[in-house]
């Protein structure tokens, strides 16, 4: 449990940072607002320095595919209105920026720091809004409720142990072990690829926080029974009994047989 609460401490620190940045940035952008803002809906006060930083990051790292004005293009879809959560999910899990050529953008080593992710998120959020992560700790929900909700809503794709699983035609639900609480929560809000979107009326904020807590526990707390064999269930168990069980015993019978 201590790992989880430490993680949530870190997250609330990020939350404070994000808030501070937004305030400072709001003053800044009062003087320096982006020009081509046809979809501008935010009041000027919520613009920020983060938005400005985010815009710079976006122009260098993302605009080749998503267009200079987030309008999208041949390389990628429009990002107007996808919301901060989508950015957190895609960039913090290393999926974006994308390498071309895969059925599904795989998780990679993230290219941006968490602070930079927040700047990108603030920028893209400023252009059309969309879902954002709720303030406060993301993991202060109820563990048992999270478990039940996870098994009902998520295990059919991600496996009850969080090991992930194959979907049709080469698509897959990834394993959840590397996901940070932010990415877990953002995944539910964003609904990437074939994953359904769990809006606040499907799963309330408290329920999503419970799931986030459970998934963090499930994947980080360790398993009591020894090596978890990848958590894929009976298939690796069968493999182990043949390779290790029968394998070692055949070697032992040969050994005994030789000492006849």
């Amino acid at each position: 449990m201590s790992t989880i609460s430490r993680a949530s401490d870190r997250i609330s620190r990020y939350g404070v940072l994000l808030l501070a940045l937004t305030l400072v940035g709001g003053l800044y952008t009062a003087f320096y607002a982006p020009k081509s803002s046809a979809t501008e809906q935010q009041p000027a006060s919520s613009q920020s320095m983060a938005v400005k930083e985010g815009r710079d990051l976006f122009l260098t790292g993302c605009s080749t595919c998503h267009g200079l004005n987030l309008q999208g293009g041949a390389g990628g879809p429009t990002l107007i209105g996808v919301g901060a959560s989508a950015v957190v999910f895609q960039v913090e899990s290393g999926r974006m920026p994308l390498n071309a050529g895969e059925v599904q953008a795989p998780r990679k080593q993230p290219k941006y720091s968490v602070a930079e992710v927040d700047q990108l998120a603030a920028y893209i959020q400023s252009r059309g809004g969309g879902p954002t992560l709720p303030p406060g700790s993301l993991t202060d929900g109820d563990l048992a409720m999270g478990g039940e909700l996870f098994r009902t809503n998520c295990a059919s794709c991600h496996n009850a142990g969080g090991a992930g699983g194959a979907l049709t035609y080469g698509k897959y639900a990834p394993k959840l072990q590397p996901a940070s609480p932010r990415v877990i929560y953002a995944a539910m809000q964003h609904g990437p690829e074939s994953m359904p979107r769990f809006g606040d009326n499907q799963l309330s904020v408290a329920e999503k926080k419970s799931i986030t807590r459970y998934v963090s526990y499930l994947t980080k707390a360790g398993q009591p029974g020894g090596n978890d064999l990848g958590r894929f269930g009976p298939v690796p168990e069968g493999l182990v009994v043949w390779l290790v069980g029968i394998g070692s015993l055949v070697v032992l019978t040969l050994w005994i047989g030789n000492r006849a």
């Binding site: 098994r151 142990g161 064999l229």
Partner: peptide, 19 residues
């Protein structure tokens, strides 16, 4: 080597299925 971690699968519930 862990085998059949029933605590991950949860109690049987006809509305659930795991990958």
């Amino acid at each position: 080597a862990q085998i059949n971690p029933i605590w991950n699968y949860g109690p049987y519930d006809p509305s659930q299925v795991s990958a």
